[in-house]
Amino acid sequence: MNLTLKIWRQKDSKSKGQMVDYKVTEISEHMSFLEMMDVLNEQLVNSGEEPVAFDHDCREGICGMCSMYINGEAHGPDRGVTTCQLHMRMFKDGDTITIEPFRAAAFPVIKDLVVDRMAFERIQQAGGYISVNTSGNTQDANSIPISKHAADEAMDAATCIGCGACVATCKNSSAMLFVGAKVSQFALLPQGQVEAADRVRNMVAQMDLEGFGNCTNTGACEIECPKGISLENIARMNRELMKSTVS
């Protein structure tokens, strides 16, 4: 299929960016979106132009590196997939596709479609871990009884790959789905409950410090999340923070 691409080009974090039109031809519907971008870049390199910079790594929906706001949606029009898992069969011959970087003041553009998502790392460093002695005499995890329900919910929360689609999609650039998932995966398990109060306080404080917006419960993040992280995690984070305030 032949496509027109409208892509955000920005030389570096200091420069002003703009949308630039490109044409790509003979794109197979079996290609992934990133393979289509590879075809464009090969075309640009061959004609002596600067290729479009975009983040990617595993290309199998695990690492959370690929981003892109495609036709007005994070990771494009398909549900439950990252951009690398989005296939060109979702588009039609002759389509115009708008491709922008994830937008949030806390995710500044580094170049073209690449944004700096280190804010998520700093939130994790503020409390997204458990303090465990790993000196070699660690207790066997299976000796701690955990209900199936709690284990399942914690695992669901832990599937968050930290891609930032929730922030990109949210009209307020709120990071509450991400932080809610990271708070929940520990709050649900006995190993995490020991430091639960400090964790939620510190992670929420760091989230606010990074300049993410305020959740207004539109629910857009849950719909666009490639891993289907539930809004329940935001409600749980709210409960955890209220609990930590009164405890």
């Binding site: 409208k6 955000w8 949308m19 706001y69 036709n71 007005g72 708008t98 922008e100 937008r103 949030a104 003041a105 806390a106 009209k171 307020n172 650039s173 709120s174 300049g211 993410f212 917006g213 305020n214 207004t216």
Partner: peptide
Amino acid sequence: NKKAKGVAYAK
């Protein structure tokens, strides 16, 4: 929240 979004999407 407007400030947190920064640049608006073209689409």
